[in-house]
């Protein structure tokens, strides 16, 4: 069967970038960026997630079906979060009881 075997060099590079990003996200946390702290932290985490998924989990070689299914996880996560936030974060706006 057609198995993709990535080089040790590729894996080492990904590993070192992941370690560097961990250092960056920790360092940046001490700088006052206000509300952007969360944004930066989540952006770095998302990049790390993509690196792990694409390289370590071989996502870039996976079958299309697997790729679509995995991406689908984020659709359901989005639905769950968006609907909950749409409730919780708007309760004060329209002056209704509930808090």
């Amino acid at each position: 069967m057609s198995e993709h075997v990535d080089s040790v060099k590729t894996y080492t590079a990904v590993w070192l970038i992941l370690l560097a990003l961990t250092g960056v996200t920790t360092g940046v946390a001490y700088i006052d960026l206000g509300a952007f702290s969360v944004v930066i932290a989540l952006l770095i985490a998302a990049v790390k997630m993509l690196l792990v998924a694409l390289f370590f989990m071989h996502m870039r070689h996976s079958a299309k079906l697997t790729q679509v299914a995995a991406a689908g996880a984020f659709l359901w996560l989005f639905v769950m979060m968006a609907f909950t936030f749409a409730d919780v974060w708007t309760r004060g706006l329209v002056g209704t009881q509930g808090r």
Binding site: T22, T25, T26, A29, S37, V38, A41, L42, A45
Partner: peptide
């Protein structure tokens, strides 16, 4: 890690 330890 960032959500529990870092963002504040």
């Amino acid at each position: 890690f960032p959500l529990l330890y870092l963002i504040d």
